[in-house]
Design a protein around this nucleic acid. Structure first.
Lengths: 144, 144
DNA sequence: ATGTATTATTTGTAAATGCAAATAAATGAT
DNA sequence: ATCATTTATTTGCATTTACAAATAATACAT
């Protein structure tokens, strides 16, 4: 029907990709990537999480996450520990360096939030966030 | 500050990735991918476009696009032609098969639009689209 | 208690992506 | 007219990613 830039998936991807790229460039000098930031942000909410849990909350595929965590471990940002209760499980913990890095990224993330939402009233921003959550939930229905 | 799922870039990416994946699965049986559909949709708006132009309107990186178009050409969906006015330029044209495929994908794209926006009033959908365009434009300001 | 099914993570492998360099052609300045 | 600069596309290469298979450990049923 309409032109490409009226398609929601396109608009969504385009905007998402642009923010992701810009943000990624911003945190690269700190030795991090967007995905690493996601993991750090998830661990900031709750530390010592299992891989599957992290995969779910960050929306990073588990096999991708494994390799990402490999890198983060090499950089000394996180720590894989065994779960005493279940030997299959790996619990991921932030290190002191990881926390330091997190503290440096937080203000960048906040700035990006501002730049992306420039000209949006607070209500509009909340409406947008709500819409994106709804949209995400709607896609669940396709999995039956 | 808040939890990961209050960050706009995350919400955006998560929703975008989910739609992209689902849509991709849907069109794979037809021998297409999401990105191919983007190219076809752009050519449906206007045929005989140059690579750089297509890259811009589809938001697909030029080098990625080159290889994507290689595949599409092999499948007989599009046709690379020389621009008589400028020998550097490649003009991309849809073939009859490409048009046939496009006609088969259009209804799928429309269905996805509906599924993604289920429960949204038409106004809400338009507000969302406008917000995504604005957000995309806002990111331009970072390139100075 | 033993075998089967389930769950958690990792590894193999192939495809997609993006940056930078290479190629090729046009434009503009001298 | 010739050379340097810019523009358009492609290729080289390294990184990211995802699916599926492999590995390892628990849980469940008999």
């Amino acid at each position: 029907m309409g032109p490409l830039d009226s398609y929601l998936p396109y608009l969504l991807n385009r905007a998402g990709a642009r923010i992701a790229t810009a943000f990624g460039e911003e945190v690269r000098p700190l030795g991090a990537s967007l995905q690493m930031w996601r993991v750090l942000a998830a661990l900031r909410e709750r530390d010592g999480r299992r891989m599957g849990d992290l995969s779910f909350t960050t929306s990073i595929e588990v096999s991708t996450l494994t390799r990402l965590v490999d890198q983060m471990e090499k950089k000394g940002l996180v720590d894989r520990r065994d779960d005493p209760a279940d030997a299959r499980v790996v619990l991921l913990h932030v290190t002191a360096d990881g926390k330091r890095l997190t503290r440096r990224i937080v203000p960048i993330a906040e700035r990006y939030e501002k730049v992306a939402l420039k000209g949006f009233a607070p209500v509009e921003a909340q409406v947008l966030r709500a819409a994106l959550r709804r949209l995400y939930a709607n896609m669940d229905e396709l999995y039956d």
